[in-house]
Every structure is written in C-alpha cells, then in structure tokens.
Amino acid sequence: MTIYLYTANQIPDFSPYRSPNDPHDGLICLTETIEPQHLLAAYPHGAFPWYEDDENRVYWFTQNPRAVLLPEKLHIRQSLQKTLRRQAHKITVNHCFDDVIEQCATIKRAGQGGSWISARFQAAYRALHRMGHAHSFECWLPENGDWALAGGLYGVQIGSVFYGESMFSRQANASQMAFAHAVPFLRECGIRLIDCQQDTDHLRQFGSQLMNLRDFKDHLRQYNAQPLTRPIVREMLFQAA
C-alpha cells in the first residue's frame, strides 16, 4: 500500500476503509501541515493525527478495532464515586481550553519520552476551539484557599460525536473526575458516541468497548450528521465546596 504525502494546500481523502490486516497498522497518509480543515476532514472518517516527525510531516492514522464509549454505558468505579462525594472540586467547560491543551502537551507520563502535541498541533486545535468544534473540561481542586487547575481533558465535537483527544492530571484522580462529569453532560447535550481511539485499561474502567472499524465508520456517517440538542458552551458544570 502506498502512503501519500500531501503538500501544504492539499486536504487528503480520509474516507478509504483500512482493513485490520493493514501492514502499516492504520497509517493512512502524511501531510506537511495541520490545520482545522484537516481535522474537520479527518474525524468524520475515523482518522486522527498522531504525531509529526523532525521534518514536520504529520502522520494520520485510523485504528481497528476502535475503542469507543457509549455515554449511557458509563461506569464509575466505587473508589472514584467516593472521591467525587468527598473531595471538594469544581468542574468547568471551556473555561481555559488553551491551558488544558498546553498541560496535556507538557505533563510527564510514565513510559513516554515526550508528547505528540506539538506547537502546531496546539495551534490547530485552538483554532478549532474558536470555531466551536473543540472543547475542554477542567477539574479544579482547592489550593492555598483558592481553586487551582488540577486536571482536565479536551476533544473534538462534530454532530453528535465527541472525539476524545487527551487528558492530564496534576493531582491524583483529577482527569478522571473531569471525565466522570463530562460524559453525562455530553449525553445531555446529545452526544451519542465518544471516540476513545486507543484501547486502554484506564478507559475500560469507564466502560469503553471495542468496535470494528467498519461499524465505527457506519456510526460516524449517521451521528456526525445529527446536531446537538444543546450547545457545548463555556459554563460551570459542578461545584462542591
């Protein structure tokens, strides 16, 4: 299979189905740039940017099978339920998107030497946020008599699909607390499917499941065309002092 490199002014065709036996493990194409137009073309076809190399080529992938979460099947383990009941916390939506994506890019993770969220990636998603298609959820915890940003997550919303991208925690459980509040809120807004991309133990604890890529893309064709029942805007989602 030939992997094409698209020049700066070209938007790839992300639609071709890739079989589970793809020898490139889901790599679809490379681009010289990453812009909001690339993202809006990629996500509805199940593609996403993963990283860029030293020559500033962006690598676009799909994943088969795909890890997804149906909002109505969210599971919150008992220990996290206790934390949510006992820990003073505040959850906001779209209060500091730039800070969230920057933290996701810089926070150190076990077993990873660095982040794929380069400055160009951040710029593209920030532009998408200004267009109303990228959203952040923030978890604030008490610190020195005030609220401090302790964790959060961001993703892309097209129609009634939310494509989760990354999360971070500066304090234990902070990103999980944000996620536990975000999923019911997204369901209230009309989100029918949450794309988790990678199958991880962390997401399986929340009830994620694997879906064949062909079925996943069928769902995308249906749900990307369905508008939200409630807009995802800047707001205070929850506060427990």
Rank of each mutant, 00 (worst) to 15 (best):
Y4S: 10
A8G: 04
F14P: 01
S15H: 15
P20K: 12
P20D: 08
G26I: 05
L27T: 04
L27N: 01
L30V: 00
T33F: 13
T33A: 10
L40S: 00
A41L: 06
A42L: 07
P44N: 07
P44T: 03
H45D: 08
G46N: 04
D53W: 03
D54F: 10
P65I: 08
R66Y: 09
V68Y: 04
L70Y: 15
H75K: 11
R77T: 12
S79A: 15
L80W: 05
L84H: 01
L84R: 01
R85E: 07
R85Q: 11
Q87T: 14
A88I: 08
T92L: 08
N94L: 00
C96E: 12
R109F: 05
Q112F: 13
Q112K: 14
I117R: 06
R120W: 07
F121D: 04
A124C: 06
R126P: 02
H129P: 00
H133P: 02
C139R: 06
L141K: 09
P142A: 02
P142E: 10
N144C: 07
A150H: 03
A150P: 05
Y163Q: 04
G164N: 09
E165G: 00
M167H: 07
Q171Y: 10
Q176M: 08
P184L: 02
F185D: 12
R187Q: 15
Q198I: 14
D201G: 04
H202R: 13
L203S: 02
S208Y: 10
K217W: 11
D218E: 14
L220V: 07
R221D: 02
P227N: 12
T229W: 13
R230K: 14
Q239H: 14
A240H: 10
